[in-house]
Amino acid sequence: MSPAQARERFRSGERVPTAGWCRGWTQANLIAVPKRLRYELLLFAHRNPQACPVLDVGEPGSWSTRLFPGDLRTDLPAYRLYRDGAAVADLGEVTGEWRADLVPFLIGCSFTFERALLAAGVPVRHLEAGVNVPMYVTSIPCEATGSLSGPLVVSMRPVPEHLVTTAVEVSGRYPMVHGAPVHVGDPGAIGVRDLARPDYGDAVEVRPGEVPLFWACGVTPQAAVLASGVDYAIGHLPGHMAILDARDDDYRVA
């Protein structure tokens, strides 16, 4: 399926997590903030590049970008609306909520390197199970800017112990889409108390002989919107991504 075909299906009302969709095409997180915060969000991303790798930015009020020629208001499967530092609604489209002062940011997504993990023999459990990737809010603070601060969010994939090095090396070749894991092993060391209860997405089984690997996640800007009390913002519903007209291999380094 092409990105344009996927966007058409979402525009027509299909509401599903996008892990495994449009293999070979890049997916991205969406966060749209008021114009007055655009440079502050850019600075936040610059200070926290592994969690917030910026792939594209739109003009104020625009609903498309160079890499996303569709309609950002309708062509993702689901959205989350924020007001005054609270998530107030999950929506199928946000045409009526999209303000003229909103600036859309597209942030790299770890779905981009999952095809490479599979090719290297590393299992991806949420794809096997047909569910959303599990995501967790950690106790690790991001580096703050003037008014934006918040915790690092991570995604988790369990990996057989003998393939941990392979998973680290393969994902490390994709630095613009989070790169190598930020943590390997004990979830408690990063403030994750229960793998069976993710903050976003779905829990997956961690089998005997497997190690949980945690990658920085592009939901981190949404966590900052919450923690910082931002008055208005629109993001994707975690795991329900923007599918870009860019290839996964565009973000691979040797």
Results as ranks from 00 to 15, higher is better:
Glu161Gly: 12
Gly130Trp: 01
Asn132Arg: 13
Pro123His: 12
Leu163Trp: 02
Glu97Tyr: 08
Arg80Leu: 14
Pro208Arg: 04
His183Leu: 02
Ala6Trp: 15
Val94Ala: 01
Gly13Glu: 01
Trp215Tyr: 08
Ala119His: 08
His162Asn: 13
Gly85Ser: 07
Gly108Met: 10
Pro134Ala: 09
Met135Glu: 10
Val204His: 04
Gly201Glu: 10
Arg125Tyr: 13
Asp71Ile: 01
Ala196Phe: 08
Thr166Asp: 10
Thr26Ile: 15
Thr220Gln: 06
His162Asp: 15
Leu43Trp: 14
Pro53Gly: 11
Val211Ala: 09
Ala203Phe: 13
Ala51Val: 09
Asp248Pro: 11
Ala224Cys: 05
Ile243Gly: 07
Arg80Met: 15
Gly185Phe: 10
Cys109Ser: 14
Lys35Cys: 11
Asp75Asn: 03
Ile31Gly: 07
Val230Met: 03
Ser155Glu: 12
Pro187Gly: 07
Tyr79His: 01
Pro49Met: 09
Asn132Val: 08
Arg66Phe: 04
Pro60Tyr: 02
Arg193Gln: 15
Asp84Ile: 00
Thr26Gly: 02
Val54Ser: 03
Ala223Gly: 09
Leu55Trp: 12
Phe214Trp: 05
Gly92Ile: 01
Ala78Cys: 04
Pro104Arg: 05
Asn132Thr: 09
Thr95Ser: 15
Arg66His: 12
Gly13Asn: 01
Val122His: 07
Gln222Arg: 12
His126Gly: 14
Asn29Thr: 10
Arg66Glu: 12
Leu127Pro: 03
Cys22Met: 14
Leu117Cys: 14
Ala254Lys: 06
Gly218Asp: 03
Asn48Ala: 06
Ala100Met: 03
Asp84Cys: 07
Arg36Phe: 06
Ala4Phe: 03
Arg38His: 05
Asp202Met: 10
Ser147Ala: 11
Arg83Trp: 03
Val225Asn: 07
Ser12Thr: 01
Gly150Trp: 00
Ser149Tyr: 07
Leu76Trp: 02
Ile190Lys: 12
Phe113Thr: 15
Gly188Tyr: 12
Lys35Asn: 13
Arg80Lys: 14
Val153Phe: 10
Ile140Arg: 03
Met135Gly: 06
Ala89Val: 02
Thr26Asn: 05
Asp75Pro: 00
Asp101Ser: 01
Asp90Ala: 08
Asp56Phe: 04
Trp63Thr: 06
Pro208Ile: 05
Pro212Asn: 15
Arg23Met: 07
Gly179Leu: 08
Leu106Asn: 01
Leu41Phe: 08
Cys142Asn: 04
Asp56Trp: 10
Ala216Lys: 09
Val230Asp: 02
Tyr251Lys: 13
Pro123Phe: 13
Leu106Val: 11
Val177Ala: 09
Glu97Val: 05
Cys217Asn: 11
Met135Asn: 07
Glu114Ala: 13
Val159Arg: 04
Asp75Phe: 02
Leu117Met: 14
Pro69Lys: 12
Phe113Ile: 15
Ile234Asp: 11
Glu59His: 09
Gly201Trp: 11
Pro3Gly: 15
Arg193His: 11
Ser110Asp: 08
Pro141Ala: 01
Ala28Leu: 06
Gly58Met: 01
